[in-house]
Simulated scan of single mutants.
Amino acid sequence: MASTSPVDQNALWNGPGGQIWVAQQAILDGLFQPMADLLVAELPDTVTQLLDIGCGTGASLLASAAARPAAHSTGLDISAPMLALARQRAEAVGLDADFIVADAQRHPLPSAHFDWIQSRLGVMFFDDTGTAFANLHRAARPGAGLRFIAWRSADENPFMTTAERAIGAELDLPPRAPGAPGQFAFADGGQVQRHLQAAGWKEVEVVAVDLPCSIVREDLPSYVGQLGPLGLALRAMPEDRATVLRDQALAAFAPFIEGDRVRVDAACWLIRARA
């Protein structure tokens, strides 16, 4: 799945993209809590060395570490500001974890070291997915387990593209290229399976899961106006114009609002494999 992208992932996640994820950490952790819970449910009792890929601000790593306190946890992410917060959160709960600012596709991880590798929405941004999966396979002990959660297609996740559909024509957004690094890079589950198998992973399963996620209704303006390519575009324009467009986008979310919550039906892949 080698591809080119108009977005410089390193610049994005070490710049405004990473900084806004830090600022919105509580909203995002609440939204994606069912995904962290799913990874914990997959976690065997016997794990001793856990690697969390694209761990961001640390939610899935912290949840797994709390469930398996005897395991040593390592978080890896390309984003220095997000990992700085993850490290602070780990220290606050007394967790002795390692955090590596690096690209999992290229970083020389220790060979045959980890017996569990996981990711919550952190594996869709590689320039070359096959190379990344091969690098992770080299870092896995024989028999090690792998669990990834990734988005299915944009069409199956209407919430995630509602604002873009509502006001995208008014903004200069980077074009979506099928298979390019980004949120929906793993939309083709069959292709993901083939890349894992080619990298040496066995017993590969790509299972469709639908997770009932939600955010507090009062957090929706921050979510729409701050996050993702659309949030970046809104923050770069004059405030009065950004407010008009954001309010226009917010109106399009009416079908997702249930009382004081905004419902997000997350159409994802749960990807299982063994080294």
Rank of each mutant, 00 (worst) to 15 (best):
A41S: 15
V47K: 04
A70F: 06
L39T: 12
S79T: 05
L39C: 12
L62Y: 05
L43N: 12
L85K: 01
S64R: 14
A86V: 02
A59M: 12
D77V: 03
A71W: 03
A66E: 11
T46H: 12
A80D: 02
D45S: 13
A65C: 10
S64P: 00
A67I: 07
Q49I: 03
P69M: 07
L39N: 11
T74P: 02
L85C: 01
E42H: 09
L50F: 14
C55L: 06
A59N: 14
S79F: 01
G75E: 01
G58H: 04
Q49T: 12
A63F: 07
H72L: 03
M82E: 02
A63G: 08
A59K: 08
L39H: 11
A86R: 04
S79M: 02
L85R: 01
D45M: 05
P69V: 13
T46L: 08
P81E: 02
G54F: 07
S60E: 04
A80N: 00
R68W: 06
S64T: 15
G54V: 10
P69T: 14
A63E: 04
R68M: 04
V40M: 12
P44Y: 07
T57V: 14
A67M: 06
S64I: 14
D37W: 10
A71H: 03
S64A: 15
A65R: 12
A67E: 04
T46Q: 13
S60F: 09
R68S: 10
T46D: 15
L39E: 08
I78W: 01
G56E: 11
A65L: 12
T48G: 14
D45I: 09
R68I: 07
L83S: 05
A67F: 06
I53F: 04
S79E: 02
D77F: 00
C55N: 08
S60N: 09
L83D: 07
D52S: 10
P44S: 08
H72I: 03
D77R: 00
D45A: 14
A65Q: 13
I53W: 03
L61W: 04
P81W: 05
A71I: 06
L61D: 02
V47Y: 07
G58P: 06
V40H: 12
L83G: 02
Q49R: 15
L43P: 11
D37S: 15
H72G: 05
P81L: 04
S73L: 07
I53G: 04
P44K: 03
A80F: 00
I78M: 05
A66C: 07
D52I: 12
G54Q: 04
L39R: 09
G56N: 06
L61Y: 03
T48M: 11
A67Q: 06
A66Y: 06
L38I: 10
A86S: 05
S79K: 03
E42D: 15
H72S: 07
L39I: 12
V47C: 13
L61I: 09
S73T: 11
A67C: 05
A86E: 01
L51A: 07
A41G: 13
L51D: 03
L50M: 14
Q49Y: 08
T48P: 05
A70M: 10
G56H: 06
L50C: 13
P69Q: 07
A63L: 10
A65G: 12
A84H: 03
E42A: 13
A59C: 09
D77Q: 01
A84Q: 10
I78Y: 00
P69N: 08
M82Y: 00
D77L: 01
A70Q: 13
L62R: 15
L43T: 15
Q49L: 04
